[in-house]
């Protein structure tokens, strides 16, 4: 068999590769189109415009006395707002970062030391920790205790013991005035 192809063979190969190119490019265009068309059907599950519009909550802090906590609803989740005592603040800031599972200074977690604001959802699997009401268990560190799987949080809402990997989340918030805060 000779190495050089006859002109007919070359033409045939040329035609074959043109065919292949056409088939592959058409299939690619169709695949891209299908993928793009899928996006609206996925994105519709994301929060709708009216849901997003309701994503801020304003709270009046005036009635919360020192040592008291309230729970407000923000984006369908509980937000813990605690008016901390001087003792709780000093306990929280005294902890060495080496003792923490998720090292974070107390000052990084609050805008005003007396107001601790955080999402009241255990970072383990989403239960709501106890410790908001006076009679409830506050765990080994005087903060919050999650009854589902035994996670203990301190007076800064940091995880100290148990299976939870992270501190209780601090939401975005800003003080509109001395006693008014906007969460979200």
């Amino acid at each position: 068999m000779s190495d050089t192809a006859t002109p007919e063979q070359t033409a045939e190969i040329d035609d074959q590769s043109k065919r292949d190119f056409l088939f592959v490019s058409t299939a690619s265009v169709a695949a891209v189109g299908t993928a793009l068309a899928a996006w609206p059907f996925i994105d519709q599950m994301n929060p709708a415009a009216d849901t997003l519009a309701l994503s801020t909550t304003e709270v009046d802090l005036e009635p919360i006395e020192e040592g008291q906590s309230i729970t407000v609803v923000w984006r369908g989740k509980p937000v813990f707002i605690r008016h901390r005592t001087a003792k709780e603040i000093s306990e929280a800031s005294a902890v060495k970062s080496a003792d923490l599972i998720d090292p974070e200074g107390d000052a990084e977690r609050v805008q005003k030391p007396q107001w601790l604001i955080m999402v009241g959802v255990c970072t383990h699997l989403g239960c709501i920790p106890l410790g908001q009401k006076s009679g409830e268990s506050k765990g080994d560190f005087g903060g919050w205790f999650c009854p589902c799987h035994g996670s203990h949080y301190d007076t800064s809402g940091r995880i100290r013991k148990g299976p939870a990997p992270k501190n209780l989340a601090v939401p975005e918030y800003s003080f509109l005035s001395e006693s008014k805060v906007k969460i979200g």
Binding site: R19, L22, F23, S25, T26, V29, A30, G33
Partner: peptide, 16 residues
């Protein structure tokens, strides 16, 4: 526009 291009290509494929 996308569908016109794709349909044109599909027609070419069908012809081939």
């Amino acid at each position: 526009l996308f569908l016109l291009v794709l349909t044109g290509m599909l027609y070419a494929v069908k012809r081939k």
